[in-house]
Simulated assay, not measured.
Amino acid sequence: MESAATAHVAYSNSIPFIAFRSLSDLAGGGEGANEMGVFFALASENSARFVKAFLAELA
């Protein structure tokens, strides 16, 4: 939802926009408690690696 709202505002103002999303939990699909704490570091590392690779290819 957050990316869609940001994309809409950017589109409405003719501003280029791209979003990269990364999951940090299983959205209730896992057994037991929310696993965000387990996957948070992995998700952030994957996101950073992806954005860096994207920017390298963009140049």
Rank of each mutant, 00 (worst) to 15 (best):
M1E: 15
E2Y: 08
E2P: 08
S3C: 15
S3P: 07
A4G: 07
A4V: 03
A5I: 05
A7F: 01
H8G: 04
H8L: 11
V9N: 03
V9W: 02
V9L: 10
A10N: 07
A10T: 08
Y11N: 04
S12C: 08
S12D: 12
S12F: 01
S12P: 00
S12H: 02
N13M: 00
N13F: 00
S14T: 07
S14P: 00
S14K: 00
I15V: 11
I15H: 04
F17C: 10
F17P: 01
F17R: 05
F17W: 02
I18P: 01
I18C: 13
I18V: 11
I18Y: 00
I18M: 15
A19M: 03
A19I: 01
A19H: 00
F20K: 05
F20L: 12
F20G: 08
R21V: 10
R21T: 10
R21H: 09
R21D: 13
S22Y: 06
S22I: 03
S22N: 04
S22M: 06
L23E: 14
L23I: 09
S24Y: 05
S24A: 05
D25C: 04
D25A: 03
D25M: 04
L26A: 06
A27Q: 00
A27W: 00
A27N: 01
A27E: 04
G28F: 00
G28W: 00
G28I: 05
G29D: 09
G29L: 09
G30H: 11
G30C: 13
E31R: 10
E31C: 14
E31G: 12
E31L: 15
E31Q: 14
G32K: 06
A33M: 08
E35G: 07
M36F: 10
M36R: 04
M36A: 06
G37Y: 15
G37A: 15
F39Y: 14
F40A: 08
F40E: 05
A41D: 13
A41T: 11
L42Q: 12
L42P: 01
L42N: 09
A43E: 05
A43Y: 13
A43G: 06
A43S: 15
A43C: 13
S44T: 12
S44P: 00
E45G: 02
E45Q: 09
N46S: 15
N46I: 07
N46P: 03
S47I: 03
S47W: 02
S47V: 03
A48Y: 12
A48K: 02
A48M: 03
R49H: 15
F50W: 12
F50I: 15
F50E: 14
V51F: 01
V51W: 00
V51G: 02
K52T: 14
A53N: 15
F54T: 12
F54P: 14
L55H: 06
L55R: 03
L55A: 07
L55D: 08
L55E: 10
E57H: 11
E57W: 12
L58V: 10
L58H: 07
